[in-house]
Design a protein around this nucleic acid. Structure first.
Lengths: 273, 273
DNA sequence: CTGAACCCTCCGGCCACGGGAGGGTCAACC
DNA sequence: GGTTGACCCTCCCGTGGCCGGAGGGTTCAG
């Protein structure tokens, strides 16, 4: 009984290209059952077909090769399923995000560009409770919603009433590298002692250039553009983290279209002219 | 009035990284308004911000840089919108495909693996009307539905009754390289003269190893695995294009779950063993 | 005048392969 | 037993869209 398949046979059976199979061999994702030591020919066994097909499925879903390997070598079913559902969730998120981006792009292209109002305002120092942290690429969204929810929870539990809308501080590197420091806060009349990640914090006073943005945060780049234009044309410099204030936000309604956000850049007069 | 932005300023305003901006300069997608000839510093103008943001939107949607350029330099709105909707359609397709793959993967992982029946059958030559063609990577799906629809249309119009389910012949390279020759046919009692792409064709007689697959074609790799195992264990060789016969298919119901396909490999006895 | 924060170019790396050169091997047929 | 053509091998380079880092010049505030 012949059960050894050449790479070509195996390729046709699994719908993986010969090149791909060689690549998987090289990176150790799918080793041939046998390699002829004389001529280097790869031979596969029929019972490797299901494995190869599993690999193909995951790769079709853009799961990184490293993670496919992790799934295949998972010590138990629990770990395995966790890895899989994790990836499927990532896919779902990405999918939703793509939908958002598409519809917001449609808006952008169809709606007429309206003038965006920018104002200059001094804000005083504000006592608050806050969660601060550092995020890497792609982590901001989840981090932010988790932090805000936790914050709200703790503040409510401590019987503090928030004296204004929630807000956030975003380091400038975030916009250059998708990584940097973040802070979310809820203003309160009298801060209390730290509880877990939630600590008292005083949002410093600042000179801000502010604009208001309506709708999903996916669109906020427009507001940033307006602020940038204003700052540039008025010969101002930016000297601190960007501030956002969620007048109507996630905590108020899940309806992204009706969110309202104030976005402020801390500025100073430059001598240059 | 100062309106020249350094690359860093521009980066913060557009949420494009400095590296990315330099890259876009290099490939000519977004040229700085001014480049200091002395030291090579790039300076951007505020009115480039919207352009940069548009670019970012499209890139977030994975539109290739080349196509973004095409959109930006489109001579008129019609061309532009055509390019955009084309890409959005591609996205939608991809999205649907991903959904499919996910659900079929879920099936695969949850459903118990059942034995798949494989039978050996001689089929006689069959007169038919057919459309033949060559496809490249990713073209098979659309090509196939278009061809089948056209075929059905012509055959119905010529007042021919088909004497059996539609079928297809698929060159083996298709499974190795996603490119190769395809043929779709509808068996008829008496073929007629060619009309456009539709030509008379006799599906040659063959020894086939056949299995039946139920459900979406996205799952058919399992059937292929079963055939491969059978062929290997019985010391057979494959010597022609794969055949599929759509007992219940696209023309019968849009409900992919209830499709039934016979998949056959033309085989011959090998002397080896 | 000094230091930090910018900016530049150039080179290499990333991921998951595909293309192609250049050469060895296998199986079937004459 | 030879020949032919299909197969297999390794090795190197290319793809896209950047990122990281080395090595070095520039600018600006204190």
């Amino acid at each position: 009984m012949r059960t050894a398949l050449t790479i070509g046979d195996f390729s046709r059976m699994t719908h993986l290209s010969v090149k791909t199979l060689r690549h998987y061999h090289q990176v150790g994702l799918l080793e041939p059952a046998e390699v002829d030591p004389h001529n280097g020919y790869r031979y596969y066994a029929v019972d490797q077909v299901p494995t190869a097909q599993i690999i193909r499925r995951f790769r079709d879903l853009d799961m990184p090769v490293e993670q496919v390997r992790a799934v295949l070598t998972a010590p138990d079913l629990t770990t395995r399923n966790a890895l899989i559902t994790e990836h499927l969730n990532r896919l779902e998120n990405q999918l939703a995000q793509t939908r958002n981006a598409v519809s917001s792009l449609r808006n952008l292209l169809e709606a007429p560009r309206t003038e965006i109002a920018v104002e200059h305002r001094s804000v005083p120092a504000t006592p608050a409770m806050a969660i601060a942290g550092s995020v890497g690429p792609g982590e901001l969204g989840p981090w932010w919603s988790a932090a805000l929810t936790e914050l709200r929870h703790v503040v409510d539990g401590a019987d503090l009433r928030s004296t204004g809308p929630s807000g956030g501080l975003y380091a400038n590197e975030l916009f250059e590298n998708e990584a940097g420091d973040v802070l979310v806060y809820l203003p309160v009349a009298r801060p209390v002692a730290a509880r877990g990640r939630v600590r008292p914090y005083t949002v410093p006073a600042a000179e801000l250039v502010i604009t208001r943005h309506e709708g999903s945060h996916a669109d906020s780049d427009i507001a940033y553009g307006a602020l940038g234009t204003y700052v540039t044309e008025h010969a101002l410099g930016v000297n601190g983290p960007v501030r956002e204030s969620y007048l109507v936000g996630m905590l108020d309604t899940p309806e992204e279209g009706s969110w309202q956000t104030e976005i402020g850049w801390p500025v100073f007069q430059t001598t240059a002219g």
